[in-house]
Simulated assay, not measured.
Amino acid sequence: MADRSTNKLGRRAFLAGSAAALASPALAQDVNGAGTTEIERELNSAVRRNISSFRTLDWQPYFSNLSGGAILVDLSSRALHYWQETGTYHLYPCSVPLTEDLTRRGRTSVTLKDPSPDWRPTPSMKKRNPEWPDYVGPGPDNPLGTRSMHLSWQYYRIHGTHDTRKIGRRSSNGCIGLYNEHVEELYEMVQVGAQVLLI
């Protein structure tokens, strides 16, 4: 009798443990597959697709130097990579433009750092969305979040957002959006003149 209850408990513990493993975040999984069980290997093949966009990159294929720091935005993987002049590397999930016609690729640079951004819709945004306000001052309702870095392209910025649902998605009108805590961290490191490449 004792053996049966122990056996039931063992089965329950195994099922609970399996459910916990399935529910655990993708980043907690061992994506290398070394020393994993068959179930973990199956999970990892699915997990790879989910986190492949957040693989680390080297700066050399994209920049000739790190003078002033370098930002690479990978629009397809929705990730922003930043290398400080020292080579220290940072990786952030981001939001990217909704459609290809709103997307701009190529080389630009940071021209202005705004510690308390206000927002005005561009003429094309206002045309598409006439109900939008003409102006939103700094604060909790500001679409640019808590920090903004202007690029040399008119109307394009790297900025924060209070709408965290947008991160990791095609959701912007052309800008690159970050979680507010990430844009605040990046803002402190980035210098005006930093190289920026959108691919």
Rank of each mutant, 00 (worst) to 15 (best):
T161Y: 04
H162I: 01
H159A: 11
I158M: 04
G160Y: 05
D141A: 14
H150S: 13
D141T: 13
K166Q: 14
Y155P: 01
V136W: 04
G168S: 05
G168F: 08
R170M: 02
I158K: 00
Q154C: 04
S152E: 06
N173L: 10
R170V: 01
R147N: 09
D163F: 04
N142L: 05
S172N: 09
P138N: 08
C175Q: 03
S148W: 04
I167N: 07
S171G: 13
G145N: 03
S148L: 04
G139H: 07
M149L: 15
K166P: 00
N173A: 15
H150I: 00
N142W: 03
G160E: 05
R157V: 09
L144R: 11
L144F: 13
Q154H: 10
I158V: 15
T161V: 12
T164N: 12
I176M: 08
G174D: 14
S172H: 06
D141L: 11
S172W: 12
N173W: 06
Q154F: 10
G145P: 09
Y135N: 02
G177F: 14
R165C: 00
D141H: 09
G137T: 03
H159C: 11
I158W: 01
R169T: 12
G174K: 03
T161M: 07
V136K: 08
G145I: 06
P138F: 12
N173I: 00
T161L: 06
T161I: 10
G137H: 01
K166E: 08
Y156W: 11
R147M: 04
D141N: 15
G137V: 04
L151C: 07
I167A: 07
G174A: 06
Y155W: 14
C175K: 02
I167Q: 11
H162C: 01
Y156C: 03
I176A: 05
G145K: 03
S148F: 00
I158S: 00
G137M: 00
S148A: 15
R165I: 03
G137C: 01
T164S: 13
R169Y: 13
R169K: 14
Q154A: 14
R157L: 13
Y156A: 08
M149Y: 02
G137S: 12
G177A: 15
I158A: 02
G139M: 09
R157F: 04
I176V: 15
R170I: 00
H159W: 06
R147V: 07
Y155I: 08
L151V: 13
S172R: 04
T146E: 13
Y135H: 15
G168N: 04
R169L: 13
N142C: 15
T146H: 00
P140S: 15
R157Q: 14
D163H: 12
P143M: 14
R147P: 03
S171P: 11
C175R: 02
P138Q: 08
N142T: 10
G174I: 10
